[in-house]
Design a protein around this nucleic acid. Structure first.
Lengths: 224, 224
DNA sequence: CCAAAAGTGTTTATAATACACCCATGC
DNA sequence: GCATGGGTGTATTATAAACACTTTTGG
């Protein structure tokens, strides 16, 4: 074939909304290079494994999440010469959107992982700052025209919870009343359940599940 | 490092609009595997080369195009086991949008290349049907919210030419009068030149150049 | 003059925004 | 009762869509 061979890794930008902030799961690396420094979870693709399968495997190893119902997509590949001191490594970045989860367990490689607000993250190993930035940008863009925001919510959720996702990801405030009408009038976005839930004060809110809709026309946010 | 190494290639979905049809540049492969069969232009990444540089190099080799002013972006990576009979090969698909060009020269590898309407393409080598499909899907999606349609046009073009790009890529008809107002009222989309050009019958049209705008809010096409 | 394409003005329908107001709960 | 968040109705404003109409060329 050719002599210029690459090791191929997958790295994961795993996003969630915690305490009103868009957050990502980072690991503290246990082995060189960059041992002890924070980075994205990831690892090498196995000999007979496809890329998405490798990403699913890493996601499970790092978070204990089975992928069912969660969103996982390929982001982009990064292969600049010198991005890994060990040699030629191509990394295929992936983007996962998950509901707010309990603080993760220590991974199988005994690496420590934890959630960090993306606004405060910098100085990651390799070119992971850039991969994270592309993941965040993609997530923001997709919220505008898709129903993906619901993947940040638990299986059953209220309109307010969904609104807080948009507000956290975009750093904006949305009118609760107009937001309500917008999402409930989008066909197949939200499936009402019979239950309601009372969260402290105020009228109890109706619970919804994700509908089958994937695209959102017209967009959730106009102009700039 | 690890024993599971990959060869890494770049493949190009090069799109243009010719005779009112969205078309792509295909090569007839000169060497095995799939010798004699059609496929996307592409080749292996060199030892000290980044992905985009490899894609630019292949674009020049296949079309003689220098990239200046043209659009080239990474699409996605494909690495399913068995996608290449020679062994483990990861291909990073790229998407290029170019103006209507003269029929390309024979490439340096003596491969024959030619434009084909995407609607009629199937049976490409490797998984290139799928890469092409993703490229076309991406191009269609991006036209909705960006000013990228202008990259299909020559340096100076009329509003009609631009409209025919949208009509070809989407297979729709657009009202010439509303389209005119839409694009001319989007700030920094079109820069008017002093010249006009008469194309056969009818009033001569004003010529424009691409402006600096990249995004288009609200979108060019609503609903479905 | 006529046909054809470029370009403008105006009307109508639809959707976003703003916000007044009612509902249902905890205290 | 009163505060709080859930949810509905309605007026205002902006935008898209439809289309009548004028402009400028070639024949």
């Amino acid at each position: 074939m050719r002599g210029n061979l690459f090791a191929v890794a997958v790295d994961l930008v795993i996003l969630t909304v915690r305490d009103g902030e868009l957050s990502t799961l980072l690991v503290r690396r246990g082995v060189p290079p960059f041992a002890g420094e924070p980075g994205l979870p990831g690892g090498f693709v196995l000999p007979h494994e496809d890329l998405l399968d490798a990403a699913v495997r890493e996601l499970v190893e790092e978070t204990g999440l089975t992928i069912t119902g969660h969103h996982l997509e390929q982001l982009a590949s990064f292969a600049a010469p010198g991005r890994d001191p060990r040699g030629r490594v191509l990394s295929v970045g992936h983007l996962a959107l998950v509901p707010d989860l309990p603080e993760p367990q220590a991974g199988s490689d005994a690496v420590v992982s934890a959630w960090h607000p993306v606004a405060a993250v910098e100085g990651l190993a390799f070119d992971h700052d850039r991969i994270l930035a592309e993941g965040v940008e993609r997530a923001r863009a997709k919220l505008e025209y898709t129903t993906l925001a619901a993947t940040f919510c638990p299986p059953a959720f209220t309109v307010s919870q969904l609104r807080r996702v948009y507000e956290a990801v975009w750093g904006t405030e949305l009118d609760p009343r107009n937001f309500q009408r917008k999402v409930t009038s989008t066909p197949d976005f939200l499936i009402p359940t019979a239950e309601t839930v009372g969260t402290g004060r105020g009228r109890p809110a109706q619970l919804f599940r994700r509908g089958a809709a994937t695209s959102l026309y017209p967009p959730m946010l106009r102009g700039d």
